[in-house]
Nucleic acid binder design. Sequence first.
RNA 1: GGCCCCGUCGUCUAGCGGCCUAGGACGCCGCCCUCUCAAGGCGGAAGCGGCGGUUCGAACCCGCUCGGGGCUACCA
Length: 507
Amino acid sequence: MTQGSSTTRKAGEAQERGTSEMGPQAVIAPGETGARNSTRVRFSPAPTGFMHLGNARTAVFNYLYARHTGGTFVLRIEDTDVTRSTDEATQQIQSVVRWLGMDVDEGPYLQSDRFDRHREAAAQLMANGNAYECFCTKDELEVRAEAMKAAGKAPGYDGACRDISEAQRDAFRSDGRAATLRFRIPEDGRSQFTDAVRGEVSVAWSTISDFVILRPDGSPVFYLANAVDDLDMGITHVIRGEDLIDSTHRVLAIRRALGAEEPPTYAHCPLILGPGGAKLSKRHGAVSVEEYRDAGYLPQAVLNYLAFLGWGIADGNEIMTADELATRFDIVNINHAGAAFDAQKLEWMNGEHIRQLSVADLTAAVLPFAQVMYGQVDATILAEAVALAQSRATTLVQIAEQCGFLFADDDAFSIREESWEKLLGTEHIRELLVAVIDHCRTCDWTVEALDLRALLEPLELKPRKALPAIYSAIEGAHTGLPLFESMHLLGRDRVLQRLSDALARLG
RNA sequence: GGCCCCGUCGUCUAGCGGCCUAGGACGCCGCCCUCUCAAGGCGGAAGCGGCGGUUCGAACCCGCUCGGGGCUACCA
């Protein structure tokens, strides 16, 4: 609960800042090219689960557009469904947004802090005849919807309470029935708006039935809260998933009924699909941002990848920083077709970003993973190993694993099954190990002196055939970080120990 | 069922009536480099869902068809 109250307080503060932000004069910091313009976008997820990649992509688009226009990026938590919303999810959303490097300019606002305002708007809608009380119970609605479906008709609300008399309403109330508030949809005509990515979107009102805007417990439903908050918060651009495109007609209707003049610009983005084109789900593997974070993905890589899902530019280079993306990003380049999530491409992109990091930065990123795996690690040794691993890994976890032979306790060191087989299959393996041991006992402990290739010729062995065995003995795998550097980092004693262990194991 | 949307290599995409014998990227295959593995370099296979129009000319415009998706909640 501590978490919850701190979130609420934070949201409240931000809210005040938001309303008092308009000072008499806008101050432009020296060196800045211009004032923040009036573009206001918001990322407004429902805190009902983990941060899905689709949600994250929506956040990225909004953030990039805010930065592109010099506008304001607002975070609003749509927790109108109190039964499904959790404080943990609210925290996770913020933590993921922060991890991805997206600075929130305003918020987080919690819709649950604004229920009074939503109820006020609902009262206004009731007063001007755009909403009415509905006393139908959920069970009744379900039964009637089934019946309509069976009759081959659209299963929406049948308007039973639309025009009942005050006397009937009183009767329902004295029956102890609780009322929801429904929005009154126009009888005929069409709803129409211009979508920045879809163009003209229109639908007949007759296909939309009166919908609930206020629950019996007084909490608002999405449509109401969404309309009111976008209005109150001065949102100018709504960038979100295409799954919400049909709800736009309802939100816009509420807006108008509330007396709003100009609607915001809506931009509905294609959904992110799983492999095969089906909806992306847990069946397809990791679908939450947290999972990628924990698997050793760099935030800048995830952001980069997500930016190019459903958005594209002609330029060949796809590896970009957040700043470059913000410069290039624009709504006109958002695609129409759904985009399948490609974990392989994300992995490749992560590798690219890993390679762009300085060794110091990469080491800092790998350190927490290495510590979880091996306890305390020597930062200097780690940095040297990371430098060797940088071009050999696509995730931070892989790097930590490749460095494992340096940090794992000696009694925990083991050789992979297939690598031991490789060693066994190596010609003159005994002589080779003996020669390497002899060499390592006395040679200078430098990378140059540890170049084992000179030892191979007398045994008539090729590096390509023979060295993997030594890789196995030293690193526990026949593939790994460059051998001579690795031996140098491991140190003479441990190298000799591992080599003689291997020799002994040969029997 | 109804309403709405979408359709370029396996995947992400460029294309916006002639610049397209369709470009780039991931993945895949081959070669080079090389102490393993990678990284890197070079090369290759692979696509306009289909059918009709319109036009001198269509990936781009129109119609139909097929396929995919979304919505149709007191979820968002």
